[in-house]
Every structure is written in structure tokens, then in C-alpha cells.
């Protein structure tokens, strides 16, 4: 049987270890504070950002995949489709109808950080993931 004092010391040591690891990891994460440099997908970190994507014969082309934009920039999303559809930007909850063979334009200030799915409601296809950081 171990004395309660020895046990307390050991558990305190264990707690210290956890805290130390926390600090260690906290330091490791600290660089997150500065927004990551925009990748080629988000080359222009300017205040204006135009994203163009289109649907034709059931295929999505253009600025698809992960699209990075700097927080605070004004995003203009232009979606073209050969069939009537509806575009929806999650989180920002922007919706716009696209006429068949036409283009819908969604304009908003990207001020909520995070990753947001942008999809078509008619064809249930994902257009892109908007990464605001």
C-alpha cells in the first residue's frame, strides 16, 4: 500500500506533466494566429475575390475543391449551369436560383472563419469548400 502523501505527489506530478504537455502543444499551435499564406487556389488575398464555377452535363468545373479566401474579403461567387438549379453557401446561408443556361451571382463579405460547403440543391453536387481564414 502506498502512503497517501506519496500518491498525492505522484498524481500532482502527473497533472504537472499534462499541463507541461499542454503548454508545449499550445506553443506549437501558436503560429495559427497569423493567417496561413494563401495557397495557389487563393492567390489573391486582396479585399475582392471572384470565384467562378460551372455545371455542364452533370460535371462541375472551375474553382472547385478547397478555395481559400482571406477573412474580411468580399467574395463574388459566379455559378453557371446548363440546367436550372440553386446555389447554397452554408454558414453564410446565401442562396440564389440559377436559370437554365444562365449565371447566378452571390456576393458577400467573408467574415466568418471556418470551412463552408458550397453546393447545388438541384443536383445535390458540391461546388467547392470555401476556406475563410
Amino acid at each position: 500500500m502506498i502512503s497517501s502523501r506519496a500518491r498525492t505527489t505522484a498524481l500532482r506530478g502527473c497533472l504537472g506533466l499534462l499541463l507541461a504537455a499542454g503548454v508545449l502543444v499550445g506553443c506549437g499551435t501558436a503560429p495559427t494566429a497569423t493567417p496561413a499564406a494563401p495557397s495557389p487556389a487563393g492567390a489573391t488575398a486582396a479585399a475582392e475575390r471572384v470565384i467562378k464555377v460551372s455545371q455542364a452535363h452533370g460535371a462541375i468545373t472551375g474553382d472547385t475543391g478547397r478555395v481559400q479566401v482571406a477573412r474580411g474579403s468580399t467574395v463574388t461567387l459566379e455559378v453557371t449551369s446548363d440546367v436550372a438549379d440553386q446555389v447554397h453557401v452554408h454558414g453564410y446561408d446565401k442562396e440564389e436560383n440559377i436559370p437554365a443556361g444562365g449565371t447566378a451571382t452571390v456576393r458577400f463579405v467573408a467574415d466568418i472563419p471556418g470551412v463552408f460547403e458550397t453546393e447545388l440543391h438541384g443536383s445535390d453536387k458540391q461546388l467547392l469548400q470555401l476556406e475563410v481564414s
Binding site: G28, T32, G91, P113, F116
Partner: peptide, 11 residues
């Protein structure tokens, strides 16, 4: 409605 930003990895 949203998912988290990627956490910077190597460190």
C-alpha cells in the same frame, strides 16, 4: 453549417 480550419500540422 461549418467545419473547422485545418490545424497547422508539423509542429
Amino acid at each position: 453549417t461549418r467545419t473547422d480550419l485545418p490545424v497547422p500540422t508539423p509542429l
